[in-house]
Design a protein around this nucleic acid. Structure first.
Lengths: 340, 340
DNA sequence: TTGTACGCGTTATCAC
DNA sequence: GTGATAACGCGTACAA
């Protein structure tokens, strides 16, 4: 038994099917009584509009695609939540697809989104942003990048303003009295790492601290990478008294690495993260970090898309500010210690 | 400029559009050379099939809807990842919608999914499962429930086998020598709480331990609830030496509550969680817990849907087993202590 | 092996 | 105000 269509309703209501269509969409063109009678009948027949057919003729599906590395990532989960909220509020539905940081897969899902005729595409934390440049020009739908990892000033984007955020984090450590401050970065070449590193250097310069290359190490943005990176710092003849980490995940790893050496946070080493994931409030000690307005970033990206749908094509590059959240992983430096 | 259709290709290739349609879908009915030539042209023209039009005629959109409380939840994120993986592997795209545990909103998104003519619906951890019962019968598409919180044996579902899993957790504590074991539950009335509690009681019985009602308290499944619940336990004249928590989030909260009283985990009190969220490995101490195969549960649910699409309508109720993961939050009981 | 004719359910464009 | 009719892009009988 096929689902009922406006034609079925038309027959029942003794009108033509376009009239049903009009009535259902509250067109002022149809007489009030007729419209109400039609809606009555539609509802009693359990009618459900067919968005597929509508999309075919209107050429707008009220559908958007979100491509993410993995929806299981807590950062991304928040962003997508924001996207979905804003989308849903405006009658849009959201396709979501993991690309697993695999460029080929990423292209495939963008392709499948195009086949589904999404009205727009949102991309979060893509590490293969560079690949978009050629693809972008062929793209027939607007695309908004969120915290993309490669410079691309000529498209729409929502990005955390890394440099000032990063400065705030390091300045906080400086104000606590730290002088030997290390940086655990992400992989080389990613924009956010480069920018957060730049903020780190700027803060050191403002404080008239020398820059010591040995205090800069690199993880992979995940706990294990942070743990390994902090090992290098702990092997130094003079330990840093504070470590600023590229993100919370790295900081979590660094935390356990530091503990593994019998050192305490923050008594021996202060630790600052970045992102303010949920986990940051519940680590022990709770992590001082830079809060990214993740959900808001998702909402904003979706908002840009909505604007793009309705009118002007102006380029939009929104920068949002991070906020320093002081918890218990930072404190004034204690007496100098050697590891173990 | 409208996107090109098979008719455009047909004109270019000097054939009729059905031939193009056949060629593009590798129908054996079309001569090999013709087919290849057509595909050549299609590709060079940058043709992208229109899944909307296809869905209209085939009455199958190769689309499914996932309704979740919030995609930002780490548990749900993993499940949805599994869903998306399996779906993508089979050419399906996934709509995702948050219902915020709001029954009205939940019904609205299910409705919008129906309008979009999804081929099936997946629901994760719904707390309003009861509402589905009337809705379910009207539903024209198959639905699979994952860890739904209300008994509903007559639909398709994937569920963690709570009772044995819970038994394992408590037995582990018994084997360590604990005799006074508390339970921090979720809200009353939810199936998973009821079942995990049942497993707890069974394990106590097997060990010939008496059941002490004062050792059972309730949180809300989140850290703050766990923290508040553990306060009641810590106010007891005789403290428990171990606490089994409804889930990891509760355990994380309990952990900080215990710490707040100057007690140590596991030296003073052992702690066991449930779920094995990512955070469980990175808390301090890392949490002993029951692992739910979250991603696998998502994959399985999607697989059930795929089977339902292709053939038989047999009822499917898959139970998956939890696995005890011993980390460092559990140890043999130490000397008895009074709080503070 | 290929082409013709039609239909999927809706909206848009005309008439009346 | 309302009704024919066409069109969206595709798949599928059926005919050739």
């Amino acid at each position: 038994m096929a689902p009922i269509s406006i034609k079925d309703i038309a027959r029942e209501a003794q009108v033509s099917h376009p009239t049903v269509s009009r009535a259902l969409r509250y067109s002022p063109l149809v007489k009030r009584e007729t419209a109400e009678r039609i809606r009555q009948i539609a509802s009693s027949m359990g009618y459900r509009a067919n968005a597929v057919a509508r999309g075919l003729v209107t050429r707008r599906t009220r559908t958007i695609g979100a491509v993410v590395t993995t929806i299981a990532d807590p950062f991304i989960g928040e962003v997508v939540s924001g996207i979905e909220e804003m989308a849903n509020d405006h009658g849009y539905s959201v396709f979501v697809a993991n690309c697993m940081a695999d460029p080929e897969r990423e292209i495939r899902v963008v392709d499948s989104f195009q086949e589904r005729r999404v009205d727009g595409i949102l991309v979060t934390s893509s590490r293969v942003g560079a690949l978009y440049m050629p693809l972008l020009s062929q793209l027939k739908v607007p695309i908004v990048l969120i915290n993309n990892q490669h410079p691309s000033e000529f498209v729409h984007s929502v990005t955390i303003d890394n440099i000032p955020a990063s400065r705030k984090a390091v300045q906080h450590l400086v104000e606590l009295g730290h002088q030997r401050i290390a940086y655990i970065g992400d992989q080389f070449g990613f924009q956010s790492d480069t920018e957060r590193f730049a903020g780190y250097r700027e803060a050191l310069e403002s404080a008239d601290f020398p820059f010591s290359p040995e205090l800069v190490v690199h993880g992979d943005g995940r706990p294990e990478g942070g743990r390994q990176a902090v090992e290098k710092l702990l092997a130094l003849p003079t330990l840093p008294s504070a470590v600023f980490c590229y993100n919370d995940m790295s900081a979590i790893g660094a935390l356990s690495g530091i503990r593994g050496h019998g050192l305490r946070v923050p008594e021996d080493i202060s630790l600052v993260g970045f992102d303010d994931l949920f986990i940051a409030s519940y680590s022990d000690p709770p992590l001082t970090t830079i809060r990214q307005p993740k959900r808001q970033m998702g909402r904003t990206a979706m908002e840009i898309l909505l604007n793009l749908f309705s009118d002007a094509h102006q380029e939009t590059n929104v920068k949002v500010q991070g906020e320093l959240v002081v918890r218990e992983s930072t404190a004034p430096p204690g007496p100098k210690l050697k590891p173990e």
